[in-house]
């Protein structure tokens, strides 16, 4: 690879014999993580630089929006309805005898918009999307399609990575809005049907402590998660080496990295948004 394009020959530490031992393993893992994060940063930066060509790449972005957003909807519909339903049951159980039942509505709406909607959507969509991006780009890498693209002077970061990342940033908040609505709907139905909470009580509970920042903060989270998912997929894909086995490993690595980073950044964002900005 040349001049600032992705270094793929020799995946990190491949074939290097490491001494064993707990701390050595831990240190090695930490180094790999830093290397991985560095490569992710570089890829993100190059993706940003290629945004200048965004207008020309719009058809590619739309195609990815369809694949990331629209095709994820069935999965999101199921997970979010049940998330809402189970939240209602669990909230009712935990709050029973302590808190008036109208707070069930508050609890559901707050937990869904702030945390459950964005995070569960990101995890579910993330597994699906980052694995598929990594497998697709990884296959292109090992069959020399990425090389062929570079050879014809088309930047793979602009043509392959950037449209996916942009689509992730746009679609995750949109899908999350859907998920929020469906989860609250699921909670509403369950509260009504099996917990005996009347619709007006539920809605009053929601209205009482409504704060637009909750929804907004959740959507900011979703935006960041959308970037993480697609970035990790592209990164693992571009760094694939070693045939079909390598493609499988890339998909796994993308999913693991997305899930871990979603949860870690969720903590960071929660602190930033709800303690510092809205707090």
């Amino acid at each position: 690879m040349s001049n600032g394009s992705m270094e793929v020959e020799g995946a990190p530490a491949a074939g290097v014999e490491r001494p064993s031992g707990f701390f050595v393993t831990l240190g090695g893992a930490a180094l790999d993580f830093i290397r991985e994060a560095g490569a992710g940063g570089i890829l993100f930066w190059r993706g940003l630089l290629s945004m200048g060509r965004l207008p020309r790449s719009l058809p590619l972005v739309f195609e990815q929006m369809r694949r990331i957003g629209v095709e994820s909807l069935p999965l999101v519909i199921i997970t979010s309805i049940f998330t809402g339903a189970v939240t209602a049951v669990q909230a009712a159980y935990q709050l029973r005898e302590f808190v008036p039942e109208q707070y069930i509505g508050t609890a559901i709406y707050k937990s869904v918009t702030i945390e459950l909607g964005p995070v569960l959507t990101a995890l579910v969509v993330g597994c699906r999307v980052s694995a598929s991006i990594a497998a697709e780009l990884g296959t292109m890498r090992v069959t020399e399609q990425v090389d062929a693209m570079e050879a014809m002077a088309i930047d793979p970061v602009r043509y392959l990575a950037m449209p996916r990342i942009v689509a992730g940033l746009i679609m995750l908040p949109i899908v999350t809005v859907f998920a929020d609505a469906l989860a609250i709907g699921g909670g509403f139905v369950v509260s009504n049907a099996s917990l005996g909470i009347s619709p007006s009580t539920f809605v009053n509970g929601m209205k009482m402590y409504f704060f637009a920042g909750d929804v907004f903060g959740g959507l900011i989270k979703a935006f960041v998660f959308g970037g993480i998912i697609t970035l990790m997929g592209c990164l693992a894909g571009f760094r694939t080496s070693g045939g079909a086995v390598g493609v499988g490993q890339a998909a796994t690595r993308a999913v693991v990295a997305s899930c871990v980073l979603i949860l870690v950044s969720d903590y960071v964002l929660a602190t930033l948004l709800f303690k510092i900005i809205f707090g």
Binding site: M140, E144, D147, A148, M152
Partner: peptide, 11 residues
């Protein structure tokens, strides 16, 4: 212009 050994068509 380059013809790759494995063709490397975008599938």
């Amino acid at each position: 212009g380059m013809v790759f050994q494995g063709a490397a068509l975008f599938d």
